[in-house]
């Protein structure tokens, strides 16, 4: 057995393998999946010299600990957190050399929700439909990590980046989501459209990789009844019967029967991935680009 492997010592609250996901299979009922904070995952890959499609680990709230069996270069990004190697502080957001057998600990996030760990060579679990991502909605890809999981690593493809510091957006203290109304905004009252754009919401603790749930004023429907199932995109703002908008994230179902009142600009979804429960949410209606 190759010693290019990573042993999971502490899996943390929810740590999954993620890459750029498996778009292109929605017609088979397959969610796109992939890293929720895609720019953070891309950045840590670049720091360790990986190709952008290499698989990384996505942690949730309290990090994880791993022990590489061979010497590797790692980078931790996304939600800022303490990083230690065998108990000694190491850099966050920069390439770090971890000797084979040493313990790399990614601590609890100071701010934000999801930290990303890239390891030189990438995590090379068997891909499913072209992706190594764990899809929590449909169960495709590797299961969430548990203590003792051993993950195979690929061969490093290039030298790590030489940087002193990289810019990274701080997790949002207020989550501003630019939305384009539609396709089903006509299922809601004018008052509901005004409410969505003018009243404050907050991130609900029931949020997960499938969707960012919100707490706030209920959006009133102009027409009752069910919508026949229809295809849904990343960032769709779906309104279930309780009237509180849900923003669909990477593991969202491919079709749904509740009306989608608006769609979030994909550029704002990385911040949504890092918004902790209770964070204020503001939806801003923008016009479609033509």
């Amino acid at each position: 057995m190759s010693d290019r492997a990573l042993a999971v010592v502490r899996a943390g609250a929810l740590t999954t393998v993620q890459d750029r996901g498996r778009p292109g299979h929605a017609h088979l009922g397959v969610p796109r999946s992939g890293a929720l904070d895609a720019p953070a995952a891309a950045l840590v890959n670049r720091l360790v010299g990986n190709a952008p499609e290499a698989a990384v680990l996505e942690t949730t709230v309290n990090g994880c600990s791993v022990r590489p069996r061979a010497t590797v270069t790692v980078a931790v990004g996304g939600a800022p957190c303490p990083v230690t190697v065998d108990g000694r502080p190491a850099a966050w957001g920069a390439p770090v050399r971890v000797p084979g057998g040493a313990l790399l600990d990614i601590g609890a996030a100071h701010a934000g929700v999801r930290s990303y760990l890239a390891v030189s060579g990438g995590v090379t679990v068997e891909p499913v439909l072209g992706s190594r991502s764990t899809d929590l909605l449909s169960g495709l890809g590797p299961p969430p990590l548990t203590d003792g999981t051993v993950l195979p690593l690929g061969r490093p493809s290039g030298p790590h980046a030489c940087v002193d510091a990289v810019p990274h957006p701080a997790p949002p203290s207020e989550l501003v989501l630019r939305v384009a109304l539609g396709p089903r905004h006509d299922w809601f009252t004018d008052a509901a459209l005004t409410t969505l754009a003018a009243r404050p919401y907050a991130v609900s603790s029931a949020s997960n990789r499938i969707g960012l749930r919100t707490e706030g004023p209920a959006l009133e429907r102009a027409r009752p009844g069910e919508l026949p199932s229809e295809g849904m995109v990343l960032g769709a703002v779906q309104v279930p019967p309780d009237g509180r908008p849900v923003v669909f994230l990477a593991d969202h179902p491919t079709t749904g029967g509740y009306p989608v009142i608006a769609v979030v600009d994909p550029a704002d979804l990385a911040a949504a991935a890092q918004a902790t429960p209770g964070t204020p949410v503001r939806f801003i209606a923008v016009r479609h680009r033509r």
Binding site: P23, A26, P228, S229, E230, G231, H288
Partner: peptide
């Protein structure tokens, strides 16, 4: 297009350069 998703009464086209 990246995705063509048929459903009960609709077809979704996702990943278009110029939807209009």
């Amino acid at each position: 297009v990246t995705e063509i998703v048929p459903a009960a009464r609709t077809v979704l086209l996702d990943g278009l350069e110029a939807p209009a």
